[in-house]
Design a protein around this nucleic acid. Sequence first.
DNA 1: TCGATAATTGACGGATAGTCAAGTCTAAAC
DNA 2: GTTTAGACTTGACTATCCGTCAATTATCGA
Lengths: 243, 243
Amino acid sequence: MPTSARKQREIAEREERIVDVALGLLVEQGYIGLTMDKIAAEMEYSKGTIYQHFKSKEDVVAAILSASGEIRAKLFERAATFEGHSRERMGAVGVAAELFYALYPHHEQAENLVRAHSIREKADSKRTEFCAACEFRCFGVATGILRDAVAGGEIEIAPGQTVEQIASGLWSLYVGAFKLRDHGRFLEDEYLSDPLPGLLRNAQMFLDGCGWKPLSTEHDYLASRERALREIFPDEARRAGLA
Amino acid sequence: MPTSARKQREIAEREERIVDVALGLLVEQGYIGLTMDKIAAEMEYSKGTIYQHFKSKEDVVAAILSASGEIRAKLFERAATFEGHSRERMGAVGVAAELFYALYPHHEQAENLVRAHSIREKADSKRTEFCAACEFRCFGVATGILRDAVAGGEIEIAPGQTVEQIASGLWSLYVGAFKLRDHGRFLEDEYLSDPLPGLLRNAQMFLDGCGWKPLSTEHDYLASRERALREIFPDEARRAGLA
DNA sequence: TCGATAATTGACGGATAGTCAAGTCTAAAC
DNA sequence: GTTTAGACTTGACTATCCGTCAATTATCGA
């Protein structure tokens, strides 16, 4: 007797609700405050039912990460559709990253947890593989734009250099800036608390150093950023307070 | 009746041993495998005695982080003594970061754990403040060199730009590269597994973009790196397999 | 040797992850 | 409408681990 379609739908909806509830607990009370009993209580289901969906607490965190990971991948893919020259399009991807960090600040924390060996292996491999696939999609968007730039002659790749290296550099600048922001909040450092101006400038310095044309001295990338916010991410920009 | 000097020394030595044992467990079995009972068993002391030294399990992790954090700060401060022009000196700091990541790969994981709000607040604030102070020292080394560069006219700081921003950029490139390396290991991505060549090049691109003279086209920074390894970090380079 | 204080112990309380036997519900067959 | 097989749900239970503290042992000056 296979489960009916209606029941299947109910189960899928319940799984989404569990992830929502768990996310709320994670954001409000941190990893320690996230317990399976609390999830079950808030869901008004028994713990056993929660374990029908997830094989462990870490698996729940992996599911949270999968959800936001896919959102990020979609934001990146939308960013790549921005109309403009290749470096402007990469700028739009940067906008996507900004918006993602603003709207889903929990993602970084969940990622750190899932990445720890001992924790990762307790999550369902299907879920961790999905998370990895989402990251690949994001990385692929960046390297794709870079390959377009190479084909269009807007950037030259030196011997021994690769588009993956440059994408890694940009990725590092963004991840590092937001990591510093979180750290700065804890340290109550004013000059680190808003990383955006410095981040945007650093990314321009890096791409200028790579010789990606037009250089930041030849084009107004702040205007491009505004256009990307307006044309591609009007809703997200409003929700993030950047509109 | 104050504790005798001998006893105090024994206690201090025992605390170091606890941190060592805990580090071994963390590296071998991860955060989940690190338990107070195992520490006590391996130490051949009771759990109560361990709690004489540390107020919680998270406090032990904070102590691990303190130990490697101070090592890093000392490496950075030694790097700043490198004889050369300002950008070469910053390169030596990069060498220090490379060596640190190679020799103390657990640091990143411990840092992620301690940084999580719910975990941090269970550690002794003295210890977390010490960790923060070590990071400040590292950051201060970088900004100090940058200020020297400004004073010497080797770099110009544009309006709205700060030396802290540039230091953040470099810091991000390094942290991000090693984070990608760990991630790449998990994903079994060959092209991400050795981040060093790409990292060195990316750092040069970034500093070239900042206009820090002499540019990478005007000076052989790989030779400077070799010299820093030889002159400042011969022991560490050997231990890290970079000599 | 004795007594006071410091140091150590490990059993215990409380909390939480994860299991599973027992019970409930669903829907198809008659 | 009734039956019934099997899917679904439950919550008590086990195991594990953190952190405590009353009891015990060690130390050292008098």
